[in-house]
Simulated assay, not measured.
Amino acid sequence: MTHSWADFRAAEPDFAAVVRARFERFRHHVLATLRADGSPRLTGLEGDFRADELWLGMMYGSRKALDLRRDPRFSLHANPGAGDGTEGGDVRVSGRAVEVTDADGLARYAADSPESHAPGRFHLFRAELTEVVRVHVEDPYLVFEVWHPGKRLRTVRRTDEDSTLYEEA
């Protein structure tokens, strides 16, 4: 089961706002795709929120685009920033990338791009979400927030001293 960004935002508006803000702190993020042999490929990507959707745009013919055409599964990890935990935690969205191939849809996307970033020929994918995860520190806890389509947001807290997981209902 997958959901659009709009579906996710409707189901969990506060969590969606935190996740989007975390992605919007930086422009460049890390995209994971699957190569033809099944091994992972990690590449940089600028995720883009427009019209209540998460878009993945990439250079025409790029390996990551060809990966997604063959197998649409992906994960997008928000740029970790300084890596010291002050950026709002780690955020990742996973799901299926649905390619936009109609000329009108591609033209609308390009026309809405800032002039300095207007793409030439490009691939465009709309993110359909299967999982959204945020991991952050709330001293003394490491907090895991996990959302799956059709399920409630799950929050789990863990301490360094105790490997027991404390799940909120």
Results as ranks from 00 to 15, higher is better:
45 L>Q: 01
69 R>L: 15
99 E>I: 09
114 P>W: 12
125 F>L: 07
129 L>N: 10
41 R>K: 13
88 G>T: 08
105 G>P: 03
140 P>C: 12
118 A>G: 02
48 D>T: 03
90 D>R: 01
68 L>H: 03
136 H>T: 00
161 E>M: 07
56 L>Q: 04
152 R>N: 04
94 S>D: 05
89 G>D: 04
146 V>G: 04
140 P>I: 08
13 P>T: 05
65 A>V: 02
143 V>A: 09
137 V>I: 14
82 A>G: 09
59 M>F: 13
168 E>M: 15
82 A>R: 03
49 F>R: 02
80 P>Q: 00
125 F>H: 02
55 W>A: 02
9 R>W: 01
70 R>G: 11
40 P>M: 09
138 E>C: 09
106 L>K: 15
56 L>R: 05
54 L>V: 07
94 S>F: 04
109 Y>S: 04
97 A>E: 06
30 V>H: 00
38 G>I: 08
61 G>Y: 06
25 R>H: 11
66 L>M: 14
27 R>I: 03
104 D>Q: 14
87 E>M: 07
153 L>P: 11
114 P>D: 06
3 H>I: 01
153 L>N: 07
24 E>V: 00
97 A>H: 07
104 D>G: 05
47 G>N: 00
131 E>N: 02
12 E>A: 11
130 T>D: 12
36 A>T: 13
159 T>V: 09
26 F>Y: 07
62 S>A: 14
17 A>R: 06
79 N>C: 11
74 F>W: 05
95 G>Y: 12
72 P>K: 05
66 L>P: 03
138 E>I: 10
123 H>M: 04
37 D>V: 08
60 Y>W: 06
47 G>K: 00
77 H>R: 02
105 G>I: 06
74 F>H: 01
126 R>K: 09
48 D>E: 10
118 A>H: 08
116 S>R: 12
104 D>T: 14
34 L>I: 15
36 A>R: 15
131 E>A: 04
52 D>G: 06
100 V>Q: 07
93 V>I: 15
135 V>C: 10
59 M>K: 05
115 E>W: 00
90 D>G: 01
33 T>N: 05
97 A>T: 09
128 E>C: 02
66 L>F: 13
71 D>A: 12
155 T>Y: 13
70 R>D: 08
49 F>K: 01
117 H>A: 07
139 D>W: 10
155 T>A: 06
